[in-house]
Design a protein around this nucleic acid. Structure first.
Lengths: 199, 199, 199, 199
DNA sequence: TATGAATGAGTCTTCATTCAT
DNA sequence: GATGAATGAAGACTCATTCAT
C-alpha cells in the first residue's frame, strides 16, 4: 500500500521539488480543478507514477506549493520589518504597502486561485490564517520594540492589515476605471498613521 | 442540439425556481466541485433530464443562484439606504454594519463558496463587482442627497465598503480568539465617520 | 398501453400524413440516427405525444415514409412502361434510363439515407426488394406483351436493372472526373439491346 | 484535452490492434449504431479508458476497421491480377468473379454494415471509392500490359466492375428464388468479354 | 384527442490512481 | 527507484417514450 516516502537521494529531492514547483505553477495558472495529475507529471517532466511516491494525491502537491508560496511572500515583508528601526513611520508604512502590492502583482493568477482555495479548503485557509497572524504579530512586535505604546494594538493591526489587503486587491484586480488610486493610497496611509498615533 | 428553454406554465416556473434554490443550496453546502447534476436533481426532487431543459449545465444553475442570492443580500441594504434621511450619521453607519453582518451570518457556508468562486469564475466575479458598484453608488447618492459635500467621495466610499466587508468576515469566519470585536467595531465606525467628515 | 391507432377524422388523417412527410424529409436530410422524435414533432408542427398515437416509434415513421417514397418513384416508371407500345425499343430503353436518373437526382440525400438503411434494416430492404421485383416483372410483361420472345428473360432483366442502377449511381454520386458518361450510357444501352435481342 | 496517442510498446500495439479487430467485428455484427464503446471494450477485453487513448471515438475505431478490411479484400484480387498473364481471358474473368463472391461471402454481415455506412459516412465512402478506383486501374494496367488495345478502356472497366459487384450482391444477399444464377454468371462473363473485345 | 413537460435509463468521456515491467 | 500504460468508477448529457392536464 504505497504510503508516501521522503526522498533521500539528491536527485530525488530535486525531483520532488520540481513536482511542487511546476505542479503549483500549473494549478495556479490553469486552476486547481482544471489540471490533471498527468498534466502535472508532463509539465514537471516526471512520470505519473513517481508523483504517488512523494505525495498522497493532487491535493497534497497543492498544499506543499501553498506552503512554499506563503513563506516566499512572507519573507520580504518580514525582512522589511526586521531591518527598519522606525524613525520615519510614514515611510515604513508606505514601503510595506508598496511591497505588498509588488508581491501580489508578480503572480496575479496564482493569487486568485489561492484566494479561491482558501475559501473552500480548510488546510489552505489555515496556512493563510497562520501567515496573517504571524505578520500581525511581527508588526506588533516591531512597533513595541520601537517604543510605540499603542492601546488595543492587536485590534488596530488587524484593521490595518485588512486595509492594506483591500487596497492591494482593488489596485490589482478591480481597476475601477475612474478611481484615483494615488489619492486612495494616501488616504489609507493617513488612516493607518492615525490608528498608530492614538492611545 | 438541446438548447435551453424558458418554462411557461406555472408549475414549470416553480420547478425551475426549485432547481435554482435547491441546487444553489447544495452547491454552497457541499462545494460547487463536489456536487453533480444528478445530486442536484435528487435534492430538488426532479429528474436529471429536466435540468438540461432549463439550464445549460451545472455552472448555469450556479450563476442563476448567485444572481438571486446577490440581489437578496442587496435588498435590505438598499432599503436601509433609501429609508434613512441621515439625521444621525453615526446611527446609520452602525445600522448598515450590523445589517451586513447579519445578512452574512445567515449563510456562512454559501458565502465562503461564493467568495471562492468569485476568484476563479469571471462570471461570478462580475456579478459581485456590479453589486459592490451599485451599493457604492447608492451610498454616494444617499450622502449627496443628504447634503454631505465630500471631496473624493467615490474613493472614500470604496475604502469604507472595504472596511465593512473586512470586519464582517473577520467577525464571522476568523474568530481570532483574543480580539476585542466591539472595540474594533467602534474603531471602524470612527474611521468611517472621519472619512465622511473631511473636505 | 398506448397501441397505435388509425385516425378517422379528416384533420387527423392530414396530421398523420404530415408527420410521415415531414418526418421522412427530416430523417433523410439529417440522417435517421441524427434526428430525434422531438425534432420531428417540431418540424411537422405537432406535439410529441401525438406521434405515439399514430406510430409505434420513430422507426415506424421512417418505414411509412419509405413505403410512400418507394411507390412515388415507382409510379412514373410504371407509367412509362404501360404507355409504350414498343415500336422503337432503343428509344424506350433510353427513356427509362433517363427517367431513372431524373428521379434519383431529385432527392440525392434521401436516396443515400435510404440505401444505407436498406442495408441494415430488413424492413426497408424488403420494401426495396419488392419494388425491384415489381419493376422487373413489369418489364418482363411489357416485353412479352410486345411480342418479344426472350429466353431466360427474368435473369436478363435482372442484369439490365442492375446495369441501369449502377450507371445511375455512377452519374449522380461518384462523378469520376475523367469518365465519358455519354459514352458509358451508349455502351449500356447497347448491352441492354443485345440482351433483349438474343434467343 | 485527451488527444489520441500512438502506442509504442509491443503489447500496446497488439492491444490497439485487438480493439480495431474486435470492435470492427462487433460493429459489423450488431450494427454500428447498436454498439457502445463499453460494449467494444468488453468484447475486446480492455478497459473503456484505453479506447480513448488510442482512438478519438467509436467512429475512429470503425474507420480503422474499414481501412484494414478494405485492404484485406483488395489483397487477393490484386494478387490474382498481378500473377496472371492473360493467356485465357475468359478464365481470368471467371476467376476474378469467383474470388469476388468468395471474399464477400466470408463476411456478409460486415459487408452489409459497410455498404450502409458508405452511404451516410463520407469518410467510409471515400475509402471505398479509392478502393474501387485502384482496382479499376489495376485491371486497366493488367489489360494494357497484356497487349489488349481497348478503346475507352476506363469506361468499360467501370461498367465491368459494376456488373461484377451487382452479380455478387445478387448471389449473396437477394437470393431471388427462381433465378438461374449459373446462367446469369455466364451471361455476365460473356458481356464482359464482349466489352474487352471491341475497339 | 392533443399537448409538451417530465422522466431516467443509457452513452460518451474523463481522470485519479494503480501496477506490471 | 522509475515508468507510463491501463484501469474503471464516476460525471455530464441525451432522447425515446410516457403521462398529467
Amino acid at each position: 500500500m504505497g504510503s508516501v516516502r521522503e526522498p533521500i537521494k539528491k536527485t530525488s529531492i530535486e525531483k520532488k521539488r520540481r513536482i511542487i514547483e511546476k505542479g503549483f505553477e500549473l494549478m495556479c495558472d490553469q486552476g486547481y480543478h482544471n489540471v490533471t495529475c498527468v498534466d502535472i507529471a508532463k509539465y514537471a517532466d516526471v512520470s505519473t507514477g513517481i508523483i504517488y511516491q512523494y505525495f498522497k494525491d493532487k491535493h497534497d502537491i497543492f498544499i506543499a506549493g501553498v506552503k512554499s508560496y506563503a513563506s516566499s511572500i512572507m519573507y520580504p515583508m518580514i525582512k522589511t520589518l526586521d531591518q527598519n528601526n522606525i524613525d520615519n513611520i510614514k515611510y515604513v508604512v508606505e514601503q510595506i504597502l508598496e511591497q505588498f502590492i509588488k508581491t501580489h502583482k508578480m503572480s496575479k493568477k496564482a493569487h486568485e486561485e489561492l484566494m479561491a482555495m482558501s475559501h473552500i479548503d480548510s488546510e489552505v485557509s489555515q496556512i493563510f490564517k497562520n501567515n496573517e497572524m504571524e505578520i500581525s504579530n511581527k508588526i506588533v512586535n516591531c512597533l513595541n520594540s520601537n517604543g510605540f505604546k499603542i492601546n488595543k494594538i492587536n485590534e488596530k493591526v488587524h484593521i490595518i492589515v485588512g486595509l492594506i489587503d483591500n487596497f492591494c486587491h482593488e489596485t490589482i484586480y478591480h481597476q475601477h476605471d475612474q478611481l484615483d488610486y494615488d489619492y486612495m493610497k494616501n488616504e489609507i496611509v493617513s488612516i493607518i498613521l492615525n490608528l498608530l498615533k492614538g492611545v
